[in-house]
Computed example of a mutant assay.
Amino acid sequence: MQRAGFSFLICPDPEIIRERVERLLADCGQSFAREVFWGDEEIGAPFWSALTVASLFAGRRAVVMRRAEALPAEFWPKLAPALKGFNDAVWPFFCLEGPLDRKGGPKLPKTLADQLYFKVAQKRKWVFVSPGLTRRDMGPRLSDWAARRGLALGPGVAEALAGALPPSLAHADNELAKLELALGDRTSLELADLGLLSHHEGMDGFAFLDALAGGRDPTLVWREIFDKELAGEEMIFPFIGLLLYEARMMWRLAVGEADDVRLPPQVRQKKEAMARRLGAAGLTRIFEAAFAAEAGIKTGARKPDQAMEFLTAELFRLFGGQMRASPRVSP
């Protein structure tokens, strides 16, 4: 594989940046020593020496500039002479780890975007841009994780896990490691095991139900979930999976078949109380509403935001609320 002359990696998740650097270095088939510098620290002679000074005795080196978005504006024009021509001994990586812009594109310092070397990098596809770990990525990552460890995922587990894991690669890996440790010699992961996952801000099926049960305006609840987490069907399906996971758990709690469900006592009490309130008929209506919303998207009868609105309205009625005549808020 012919490697890049220099690389720009743009992603708000530092673990994905680190993983990408390692993959590029591994794929090129050559050995590189790593020298790492940080853009939010003073950039002095050691960096410029690593970038430009060749040595007869040292091997190839990857010069990695982390948090490059914090570099001063005058840095980028100074970089131009060092990036002229191809240096077989040095592979520079510039990692911009700030948030992307509102449209999901790279947020670049103007003095970088104007540089000829950056335009060359774009033309030659030496620029990697990622929004970070998205719900769409979770499915393939979970499949790879389960396959590498010889794990079978029980019914509904993949969807629920995709919705429950935090949208940070390092944090998601920590949660998966926690599940592995808890499984011991077992080779299957069931819905009951997901109670071990740490709570995180994001898509929370029970919090969604609890907000509706508490009488909150369903339009506001729907909008809060949609604005915060959902944007298209690739996001809604994991959310529906997480909602079904909560319904299945409450069903087991309601019928006394949840001895192996691991939950903090306070959380378990709240879910048991809701399960008693809903009963078998109410829990069945959650399943029906979730399946109807999912089918509406898959058949094209509803757009994702319409399906979410329908689901919210149905659940609000389930908890005894009266919908206003026109609850819709356009995206």
Rank of each mutant, 00 (worst) to 15 (best):
F239C: 11
F86R: 08
G5S: 13
A62P: 13
L142I: 13
K110H: 02
A213G: 09
G156R: 07
L311E: 05
L278A: 11
G205L: 11
E15C: 07
V157N: 03
G104T: 04
L153Q: 00
L116A: 15
W126S: 01
R20P: 03
V21C: 11
I297L: 14
E19G: 06
A231D: 12
E35W: 01
F6H: 13
A121W: 08
W76L: 07
R3T: 08
E41A: 14
L71S: 08
I297W: 04
L311M: 10
R141T: 00
F239G: 05
H171D: 13
E294R: 11
I286T: 04
E229S: 13
G44D: 15
E309C: 07
T299Q: 07
G156S: 01
P12Y: 10
A158L: 15
P238R: 00
G85C: 04
G156M: 05
G132P: 04
P131W: 08
A82Y: 00
A172C: 11
W91D: 02
I286D: 03
S55H: 10
A80P: 00
P167K: 09
L253M: 15
F8R: 01
E97M: 13
G282I: 01
W126F: 06
F239H: 06
A58E: 15
G232W: 07
V267P: 00
G5R: 05
V157D: 02
G85T: 10
D27Q: 14
W251H: 12
L9C: 02
P327K: 10
F291N: 07
I43T: 13
E288Y: 02
W38R: 14
R285L: 12
G154V: 09
P77G: 06
R141L: 15
R3F: 04
M249I: 12
A82T: 02
S326Y: 15
M203F: 06
G104Y: 05
A172R: 13
L116G: 06
T52W: 02
L112F: 10
A146Y: 08
V53D: 09
G154F: 08
G85H: 07
D204Q: 15
A258P: 12
E309M: 03
A146G: 02
